[in-house]
């Protein structure tokens, strides 16, 4: 498969969040500011690429009866490495993501890609797949983050821009606090998935029209 196809799959047609509905816990829990979303997305992408590469390299060595257990150990190893690195060098991120960093171990995206792709394909293809799927995950997270942050705290780029406070777009007192609370997570993700379903159907229809012409 070509890079372009992989990329399109990861970003839209097989996006891990909006289409495969994997890794929902972190998508809902930490998407309250751009900083969190980007950080989580990058952490997952790095772990996904590493675990895909290692699992793909070992795919002929791991007996198929115990493959799930083996995958989990490999993934947990990388998660621990990333967790410790974040604690050492990016303490702010590590504190704001909290227990959801170790919980990347049970993020179904990583185990799902290991089982569905890395266990059947070569090392390079698996690395590419990890990169594209991770990118799709990050994009979905960032979209949810931007909407929630704008509606909930009225800012953009919280945690990164403007000395960590973010650029204020809606004046203080007006934003709906609930959007950065659990309610907002469910509602915004619902609308984002609905939006992506609408977009995909539109693209499909346009493709069909092109074929008909």
């Amino acid at each position: 498969m070509k890079f372009k196809d992989h990329f399109k799959e990861g970003l839209l047609t097989k996006n891990p969040v909006t289409v495969q509905l994997l890794g929902m816990c972190s998508t809902l829990a930490i998407t309250t500011s751009l900083f969190n979303g980007l950080g989580m997305g990058l952490a997952v992408t790095v772990i996904l690429i590493c675990s895909n590469v290692l699992i793909s390299a070992l795919r002929k060595v791991i007996p198929s009866q115990i493959r799930i257990a083996a995958y989990i150990v490999i993934i947990a190893g990388f998660v621990t490495i990333v967790d410790l690195l974040l604690q050492a060098y990016l303490q702010a991120l590590s504190e704001s993501l909290g227990v959801f960093i170790p919980l990347i171990v049970v993020n179904c995206i990583i185990l799902g890609r290991a089982e569905a792709f890395a266990s059947k394909n070569g090392v390079l293809a698996s690395a590419l797949d990890g990169l594209c799927q991770g990118f799709g995950y990050t994009v979905a997270l960032v979209i949810v983050c931007v909407i929630r942050e704008l509606l909930g705290s009225g800012t953009f780029g919280g945690g990164i821009l403007n000395g960590g406070e973010g650029i204020r777009i809606i004046p203080e007192g007006f934003p709906a606090m609930q959007m950065v609370m659990p309610v907002g997570g469910f509602l915004v993700l619902g609308f984002v998935i609905a939006g992506s379903q609408w977009l995909m159907r539109r693209l499909e229809r346009r493709n069909k029209k092109k074929e008909a012409v």
């Binding site: 509905l21 609930q178 609370m181 659990p182 309610v183 907002g184 997570g185 469910f186 509602l187 993700l189 619902g190 609308f191 998935i193 609905a194 939006g195 379903q197 609408w198 159907r201």
Partner: peptide, 23 residues
């Protein structure tokens, strides 16, 4: 419900309203 909301989106919104109640 609207076509685009069928399946998971409407389920998520339902869950959102439940979360509101649990608040």
């Amino acid at each position: 419900c609207p076509q685009a909301f069928k399946g998971f989106p409407i389920a998520l919104i339902t869950a959102g309203l439940m979360a509101l109640a649990f608040m």
